[in-house]
Design a protein around this nucleic acid. Structure first.
Lengths: 166, 166
DNA sequence: ATTGAGGGTTCCACTTTGGAACTAATGCGC
DNA sequence: GCGCATTAGTTCCAAAGTGGAACCCTCAAT
């Protein structure tokens, strides 16, 4: 299967990864969350080639994650800012950072820490159940097909395998 | 910069992405969290080439995310299971799925939902502050260099740019 | 002896990436 | 009014990564 077709699968994760799941895009977003907005600043920070960067920024704009905004009339200059949709990716960045801080940091520890403005403390973030508020880990959760999926599966010659879901 | 050097940066996110940040790896992990364990099952579900799959599984084993375990003596057969370190990636997968459910699902809605065993409800997960327990979003958090980073930065000709951090 | 399952490896064409140089519009000092 | 710097890109080419398909090995069952 070609990568460009992955975004068409009936799998939310696959579709999301078709937008953000390549080498550089999540690093672009990391910088965006740290306040980077300009082409050259991304380029200097990331060490990505200008060519690739232009390509990735275009893609993120196309998917509504970033907005390309003129910040100066002449010469025309643009900067890239997170949209609301982009802001919602914070959870992805921060859980990646959290895993990295726990499992991939060198002996010196990580270079960045996150402070919760609300309580003023350096904190790691946890996942909690929307419904009951308890902290959850993988073992507390089960995945299951949604109703519309169960119906579709039932209709389609009934036994077809449960793949390409998730 | 070559991608293989990204894992050496002093950035937890970059290092983490050097392990899980390619086209297929997160989809392999998605399947692993759904219970897939065998080479052929991954291959059938993902549509990845056997070659690439072998490569990705090796890499995940090398990084301690999966364990290659013999489940049958003769002929020798192996399966791939999440380690504890691998289990800790659940947050990454589930926040990606959460973003996708919100922003990338078709009009039919997502194909999979997650149930919290503890309370029995279908739920989306939220990020909360480890310290005070409040739900947080991007705007509630600030990133800052850790102490060891500030010290290093201060020592090194003092003005050097704050890049390759995060 | 042949077929089949499971878990791979090999080969080759094609695509994507990295590196470096180049472009284009404008402002700035002199 | 000319050379230089800034910013945001594009172009070109070689090198690396990927997809498709076929092949390999060990053993078990028929």
């Amino acid at each position: 299967m070609r990568w460009r077709d992955v975004g068409k699968l009936d799998c939310t994760i696959a579709r999301t990864l078709s937008v953000i799941g390549d080498r550089w895009t999540l690093l672009v977003l990391r910088d965006a969350f740290l306040g980077t907005r300009r082409f050259d600043a991304f380029q200097a920070s990331l060490g990505i080639t200008r060519h690739r960067l232009a390509d990735r920024l275009r893609k993120l704009v196309r998917h509504g994650v970033l907005r390309r905004e003129r910040y100066q009339q002449s010469p025309p200059r643009f900067e890239y800012r997170l949209t609301e949709k982009g802001h919602d990716l914070y959870g992805v960045i921060v859980t990646i950072a959290g895993w990295g801080d726990k499992h991939m940091a060198g002996k010196k520890g990580p270079p960045v820490e996150r402070v919760h403005r609300g309580c003023g403390h350096v904190t790691a973030l946890r996942l909690t159940c929307d419904h009951c508020g308890d902290v959850v880990t993988a073992r507390d959760m089960t995945a299951r097909p949604t109703k519309r999926y169960r119906d579709t599966a039932a209709r389609s010659t009934s036994g077809r395998r449960l793949k390409e879901r998730a």
